[in-house]
Design a protein around this nucleic acid. Structure first.
Length: 280
DNA sequence: AAGCACACCTGCTAGC
DNA sequence: TGCTAGCAGGTGTGCT
């Protein structure tokens, strides 16, 4: 499912393929994909605008327009952004295509979302950093802002929850989802079931380095595409980082470090993978 | 008031 | 073989 590395890969695609183009036409057919405003409002605010910048905050894509408004896209679990053309009409529409944004050069951006959890909205209500006010609850983005170890230690000691729930909380760090939470815990050699209050400073420092390294490596690998093939980049290509997963989706398989079988349990309502021997 | 369960969806799969 | 219950997970909401 798209987490920070997958969304960052899509962002880079938008930067290369969409920035600088003028929006000619917008068609929204998926009524569930636009829910914070009317479809008519969204269409009117996009038509005629030129894309000026492709940004990201956590798992949200921020497509900046030349009138200082921003098109915000969240892919949730099954959303895809696909770039087609030119010419755009020669590429057949796939099932679950809910929105099409056509550009002046006859190319097109398509929003495809099987499970319709994803959404699009346009907002001009931005904070001084240019981040939509609607996203103000998000914590630091590990790639854009970096992680402040002291701040993380402060948050961890104040919480009474598991490390897994802590990492999934987008108000703590924005962009980590189920896959990379498990992978980061493995790299840090900490059990995701640990309560955050029991984590020593040395362990939190290891966690900070592990989150950073796993996200960096995953971005370099173009993100992770699981068996359901839901995640692909703007041009439809799958990611490669799934081949480097150490624990996620590897229940019963040998640990890459010690050879003992990877275990899977349910933590914070999520399927959680770990090595019971390497992680403490 | 923080933390948890649940709803929202569709498609795939495990199990009968 | 064919059906169905269960599962997959990001986030908003509502309850405790």
């Amino acid at each position: 499912m798209p987490e920070l590395p997958e969304v960052e890969t899509v962002r880079r695609g938008l930067e290369a393929l969409v920035v600088g183009k003028r929006i000619d036409d917008v068609v929204v057919t998926g009524l569930r994909s636009v829910r914070r405003q009317s479809i008519a409002d969204l269409v009117v605010s996009l038509a005629g605008r030129t894309v000026s910048i492709a940004g990201r905050r956590g798992k949200y894509l921020l497509i900046g327009l030349d009138n200082a408004a921003t098109l915000v896209v969240h892919l949730r679990m099954s959303g895809q952004l696909l770039f087609v053309g030119p010419p755009r009409n020669e590429v057949a529409l796939v099932a679950h295509t809910h929105a099409r944004i056509a550009f002046d050069d006859d190319s097109e951006l398509r929003f495809v979302d099987q499970r319709t959890f994803g959404e699009l909205f346009v907002t001009a209500d931005l904070d001084p950093r240019g981040v939509p006010v609607a996203l103000s609850r998000l914590g630091a983005d590990p790639l854009v802002d970096g992680i402040d170890p002291s701040r993380l230690a402060q948050l961890a000691s104040a919480r009474r929850t598991t490390l897994k729930a802590f990492l999934l909380d987008q108000a703590v760090l924005a962009g980590i989802g189920n896959m990379y939470a498990d992978e980061a815990c493995f790299r840090a050699r900490i059990l995701p079931t640990r309560m955050t209050g029991t984590l020593r400073r040395s362990e939190l420092d290891r966690l900070v380095r592990s989150v950073g390294s796993v996200l960096d490596d995953a971005v370099r690998g173009g993100g992770s595409t699981l068996r359901d093939a839901r995640y692909v980049d703007l041009l439809g290509a799958p990611g490669r980082f799934q081949e480097h997963h150490c624990v996620y989706g590897r229940e019963g398989e040998p640990c890459v470090a010690c050879g003992r079988p990877i275990r899977r349990v349910r933590v914070a309502g999520r399927s959680t993978h770990f090595c019971p021997s390497c992680q403490r």
